[in-house]
Amino acid sequence: MQNILRVGMADLKCVEYPGILTTLGLGSCVGIALFDTQRKVIGLAHIMLPSSSQARSIENPAKFADTAIINLLEDMERNGARLRNIVAKLAGGAQMFAFSKLSSILNVGERNVASAKEKLNELNIPIISEDTGGNYGRTIEFYSNDGSLLIKTIGHGVKKI
């Protein structure tokens, strides 16, 4: 059994080959998975909110898409990763309950995904695959040997992206 490191809600971690990272039960939160294709360093962030700019306090940078990506990149670079080798995968950003009135609460998943994409584009990090949206939760496992991202759900199957 390989050692699997768990990333909590509003948390981020990075490991080198042969490490595996996982985060459980992504709902409207988004899992941002970064992979250095050459050095096999992986990083995973479990973000809750789109942007630190609208926040009242930024005690925890891992909570926001924009600041989490920056912090995760710094961690990965300290572990030998190079920005030019890094590619990204995204998962999560679901809408768990369907109310039309509570739009600000409910489209947060969509906004989380959009904000993560915007930040990655700004940094010229290619997004090579994603499994986002829908109305169901996801557990993800991220492998450093090939950068594959395994997505598990309840009632919506298992897939690898």
Partner: peptide, 18 residues
Amino acid sequence: SIDMAGAILSVPAIEFGK
């Protein structure tokens, strides 16, 4: 919604997270 605890709890957690 009948789904993963983390996914359902993300809804209140995100609001409180603001």
